[in-house]
Amino acid sequence: MRKLRRIAGNIGFGFGVLMLVSPAILVFLWMLSLSLKTELDNTDYPPVFIPNPPVADNFLAVFERNDFLTYAINSVIVSFSATGLAILFGVPAGYGIAKMKATKAAVVILIARITPGLSYLIPLFLLFQWIGLTGTLAPIVVTHLVITVPIVVWIMMGFFEGLPAELEEAALVDGATIWQAFRHVAMPLARPGITVATILAFIFSWNNFIFAMVLAGRETRTLPVAVNNMLTFEQISWGPLSAAALLVTAPVLLLTLLAQRQIVAGLTAGGVKGG
């Protein structure tokens, strides 16, 4: 009797877990299904669930039209630059803040996390017009720093605070400069933290929509902006639309699956999120 109850309990628990993960699974599967079906099947009612047979036409259509490749390259350039620069500036800053216990600097980062992304756009938009940078990728990279730099500084600050100070102190006693102590002692130890910061900064830069939407011209759109434009112009062609959406989000989903342990660690520690 007790055993029976435990089995029933386990089945109930399994069912509960299934309920928790099914919304995620269903939305992504539906995205996949739409992208692999013909236009006829996509607008059929009741809906066709399993593509039969699956077709690649939608993906081909995405690459044929819309300069999709140009936008993909733009996205890659923007996200890599914004992440790289944030690591370059943010890792030493995180170290400095941790060493000086400069909590006031941390408050700036916190407020930056609170401020709506849109509010940076109005002044920066004007600034780029005055400097004459509109129409290039530079303004988009710079605005993405608003997202990536706080993420990197916040994660690295926490990480360096958690490292034991003895090793660096030993290096300093042996005559190393503080830069050498940072470069050759603290940085190697902090590599896991840098990995987490890089992954999260990259994902939130890749996903960002609003900065590029306002700042990008025809040639400088990033993928999220390009995909949103497809929606406005081709209301009903669901197949190519889903194929494009899937292509845009596939890199970050794969990255999440591959690096889930680091991502969970980073997000649990900081509650960071871009934008």
């Binding site: 628990f13 928790l20 995205m31 999220p224 995909v227 959406a245 989000t249």
Partner: peptide, 29 residues
């Protein structure tokens, strides 16, 4: 529980997915 790691990863996928891409799928739904 068995497959906990996988279930947890699937559960956090929505927050990592590109919001615009997901919003498009919702619009169609």
């Amino acid at each position: 529980f068995p497959l906990r790691g996988l279930a947890r990863t699937v559960f956090i996928l929505p927050m990592m997915a590109t919001p615009v891409a997901v919003a498009l799928v919702w619009t169609m739904m």
